[in-house]
Design a protein around this nucleic acid. Structure first.
Lengths: 227, 227
DNA sequence: GTCAATCTTGGCGCCATCTTGACGGCCGGG
DNA sequence: CCCGGCCGTCAAGATGGCGCCAAGATTGAC
């Protein structure tokens, strides 16, 4: 699911955006000032940022630069100022788009889709998204798993689970987190599913499924993927 | 040097843009209608396109789609229409930005810089526009499919679908993405269409349509084109 | 106005996938 | 030593996605 970070100091506008975005199946985080936005963006990296320039605590351009220091996430700027100067400043600071208030929700959503669309392939046709072990390789962009020179067929659930583990490679991923990301918040206690699907993954990918070397169980806590 | 393709039917506006762009060390090509724009874009692939929607010979969205068929070059749309609908249509057709006339030259240049900047790391215009398999070849630029020494006739929808798949060759394309790109954002759940049109493509292009080797179904996730 | 091509819509059967429950082994604590 | 929690394994029933077919709508050409 695409995650949007909304930054604005007007609770009303935040409310309106959150409602509209959630109705369209976006995951939404919200912050009311620049410092909070930067903190939230680091904690839960968004796929696109909607940023109001008129924040109480920081200059808008500084927020943009704060993000651009470590991420290429698309930034759509909102502002009440029509001044050409302000637009140029924001865009040159690293923003991707500039929308003046008041704006049509349809238009903002369309610009948001455009921003997400063109950002997608940045991770895509490139390279680096391939993780390898001694027995198999995972291509996150192409959604492909190869083992012994042949493609391995994974079901959607299997793939989703593998994806979460690989994205956190080397780190322990808690059972709750796995269940929540793959099956949704309502399944946080169904540890049964994890057992069944971890077994599937191991059977399809491990050299010796009964003695897993890459999908490690951490009893009582969760699972870890070791490249 | 960055090459800009300017498309507009007003010679005055073209003159103004050409002067401003050349002064800033851009290389500039210009076309006065949609057909000329598509021809020129194919002959001398630009790094960014500035496109007026009010062209005499073609609908603006069709020009966008004509470009998007084979290239991901950033497209900045100019238009006198402020209608929200028109903006949404252009953006969803594949445009990256939408500027309403009259506009400040500073702003346009800033948006142009932003578009070029974020497109930078993407693969240059050297992508092969012809993709071949053992039974047929697809020429994205010429919009032609050859099989057994003869051209294959495809309907517009079939083309569009094939186009999206081929552009993402080797990678899995989600059902939602396919539906959204081919039929529009409102059809993201009509998986019926996919089944029908994938069957059409397979019937026309696969050696054995009932056992597809190039248009692979990934149940529950999407489809993949394998060259 | 007629006709053909294309797009939309619905239904049906099959099969992979998901869900769910049960069982046994391992391990640490009482 | 026994017991309870946790994990791995297996299998059967429920579910839902997919391919396929075919009949209306719709569009566009003549």
């Amino acid at each position: 699911m695409t995650r949007v970070l909304v930054v604005d100091d007007e609770p009303q506008l935040i409310r309106a955006l959150v409602i509209n975005l959630k109705a369209r199946k976006y995951e939404v985080d919200a912050a009311q000032d620049g410092a909070g936005a930067l903190r939230l963006a680091a904690a839960r990296p968004p796929d696109v940022v909607v940023l109001d320039l008129g924040l109480p605590d920081m200059d808008g351009a500084d927020v943009i630069r704060g993000l651009r220091g470590w991420t290429r996430v698309p930034i759509i700027v909102l502002s009440a100022r029509h001044s050409s100067d302000e637009k140029v400043q924001a865009l040159d600071a690293g923003a991707d788009d500039y929308v003046t208030k008041p704006f049509g929700m349809d238009e903002l959503l369309a610009r948001l889709r455009a921003a997400v669309r063109r950002a997608e392939p940045v991770t895509g046709p490139g390279e680096g998204a391939v993780v390898a072990t001694d027995t198999f390789t995972v291509d996150l962009a192409a959604k492909k798993v190869r083992r012994d020179e042949a493609d391995v067929r994974l079901t959607p659930t299997e793939w989703h689970l593998l994806e979460v583990l690989v994205r956190n490679r080397g780190r322990l991923v808690g059972q709750t987190q796995l269940l929540q990301e793959v099956w949704g918040p309502a399944y946080r206690t169904e540890t049964n599913y994890l057992r069944v699907y971890m077994a599937q993954l191991r059977r399809k990918l491990e050299a010796d499924p009964s003695r897993p070397r890459h999908f490690v169980t951490e009893p009582g806590m969760g699972y870890r993927f070791e490249p």
